[in-house]
Design a protein around this nucleic acid. Sequence first.
DNA 1: GTATTTACGAACGCTCGCTATCTATACTGT
DNA 2: ACAGTATAGATAGCGAGCGTTCGTAAATAC
Lengths: 409, 409
Amino acid sequence: MSKGTVGGGGTTMLRRINVASVLDAVRRSAPAPLRVAELVERTGLARPTVAQAVDELLDAGWLQQHGPDSADRSLGRPAIRVSLRGRAAPVLGLDVGPHRVTVGVSDLAGRKLSLVRRSGPGWTAQELLGVISEVINEALAEAEVPAEDIAAAVAASPGIVDEHTGRVQLVPSVPGWSAIDLIKHVRGLLDCPVMLDNDANLAALAIAAARGGTGTLLAVQWGERLGAGIVIDGRLHRGTGAAGEIGFIATGPDDVINPDDSRGPLERAVGSEAIAALGRQAALDNPQSRLAELGGEQLDTADVFAAAAERDPVAQAVVQQVARAFARALAPSVLVLDPTAVVIGGGVARAGAVLLDAISDQLRLLTLNHPKLELSALAEDAVVTGAMRMALDEVWQRKLPTPAMTSTT
Amino acid sequence: MSKGTVGGGGTTMLRRINVASVLDAVRRSAPAPLRVAELVERTGLARPTVAQAVDELLDAGWLQQHGPDSADRSLGRPAIRVSLRGRAAPVLGLDVGPHRVTVGVSDLAGRKLSLVRRSGPGWTAQELLGVISEVINEALAEAEVPAEDIAAAVAASPGIVDEHTGRVQLVPSVPGWSAIDLIKHVRGLLDCPVMLDNDANLAALAIAAARGGTGTLLAVQWGERLGAGIVIDGRLHRGTGAAGEIGFIATGPDDVINPDDSRGPLERAVGSEAIAALGRQAALDNPQSRLAELGGEQLDTADVFAAAAERDPVAQAVVQQVARAFARALAPSVLVLDPTAVVIGGGVARAGAVLLDAISDQLRLLTLNHPKLELSALAEDAVVTGAMRMALDEVWQRKLPTPAMTSTT
DNA sequence: GTATTTACGAACGCTCGCTATCTATACTGT
DNA sequence: ACAGTATAGATAGCGAGCGTTCGTAAATAC
């Protein structure tokens, strides 16, 4: 690493490349086992080479051998089939929120082995560390994976994360959280590469992986807070470290960012608390509306969308107002990024089509290429899923020296 | 190519990788010749391997041999030094505007061999094709490069460009231009891969190359029209094809994009014509101001900035207004992209520090991480330079099988 | 029970890169 | 002026890996 060497080397390098090529081919066909003949075709290598590589990978534990498929009714000697041995390098994803800690353990092939959630009423930073340890151990136990087997771990934290130092810069919800070195804590438990990233970024990664393929994705996490992650051709865009902070977009013509305020203007305008507040005000102004009826004193964000879905004009006006503010704030970024799709996740995404259509209508007036506008299908597990995804990417990037670009899938 | 093969192969593949590795090492140290010993160190390969590769590359014409440097006062037998033979694969860049056609021919090493400009008073689409042919031939003659030697060509056109079909979608300035297949025309002249891209994109590529290194760059072209290109770690971000169209960002609270209007709201608000119009109005309202004095009847955009530079409060107010509108329009994208730098080029960039400082002040209020704000150093040649740059990238990508990622420069 | 089909396994030959050695060249010190 | 030395280039031998070819094993079809 200290040397500026590039790619080439001796024949052992060539062997490593070819082994990686075989492993990559197996990985691409995810859970489906492959016959050696298929590997020969996909890699373009000769059969002995593939066979040797497969042997090596079997010995190293990366592949597992299957018996001949009974369903495979073909002539001739039945082929040995191999597939990824997921337990070879399981990974761990960690989602830390102010009120909830979620830990997932995943297969090398991307299968979830376990997923453990723990909710609580606002922990302190110190308590949180303890909870994290407990939940991690629980998830490991459930997955039946010893801690030392974990090959990589990724933690998600709200706030702006410095990718390299692993420090969190800006977290309002948990007092004292930014002083904690989460990476160090997790590394103490796991002894493997541990990375930390923004929760919106990781959710975006999960959504991009679920959608598959290439293109640009803008994944908005919309709850009390408002953030977004950008994934371009499968890679996360971080900028200098704070990319996607749409919560701080100014809305009014004279808005500015208040450095002492942990929330941004757009969060204050259309965050779920703001939506509830708008709803309450509208209910007060229109006491006989369906909205007031539904919500009562404790009117909630969900009530606003429910009433709007029932075609209550008062609630619809609130939704319109929110959608308009959101769309106008997001439109410049849509013009600049020109994403293939904009996916909305987080608590507000539960609003469903009512909100989505309103945003879509507004966005259509303000953009050139209109991206697909969708709701996230992953719901609240998006962040953990993304964390596991990133950990997997890390493992593969370490194991595969070849970037291995294929034109066709 | 028809097979979905990946990377590996026999030993000849290994040889190709190593040769490419050597070639890449030479390329990285751009115009400076390298000794074989240095290549050994940089590639990490053994000396005989490098020597063989160098021989092969010399035979193929990719490298040229230098005599021992007389300035090199070192002990021992003087080293043979090799450098890129630029003439091996010269490339051509083409910038087509409504009033000007520019063609540049560049070395494989990035040295400009020739640069020919031709200005005219608004050609028709047909006339433009003729002019393009002439200017290309002139540039080839000046560079002393036969047309068939050109290894790749990139053309820049205003408007939104479909990367694959090579069609231009939206060009207001040249009537009938979108119907012309520019790629086909150029390919008829050159017989090599020809690509077409947006002018703002190519300017961004040139600026990014000049700045060097990694990071995210937002390069704004600000003249009568307003566009931007995004370069992330050296790669152009295209989105679905229309990324960077900042001219269409809505400014007023009720602005929408008019599909029949070839200009966008922000262009209409702060394009150079708008700036001149604002200046004229201000001069009318304040007849004894320095601005009115400077500009007179034919008040120009440049006059506004000149008067502002002389601390005329009337002109400064105009600049403030423009800067404010621009910054507020750009701020959301800066938050989302979080670029390392924002570079402003195009005609308005000649305004200099007056405008830049005003924008910087505004942007500071509206963003979290404040990117470096700079003026483009490349002036009007940015687009051709970027076109040549992209053509070079294409050639290298074709010639180098190894992506060859180096951590250190 | 035999023929056919498919896949695995082993031996041979080829190419390539690395290590080690030798030769060539120019500067330096006596 | 001549020998010494330091640096760079050229050459042989070795090892490793891949690809081709042949032989063998196991299942199905007739």
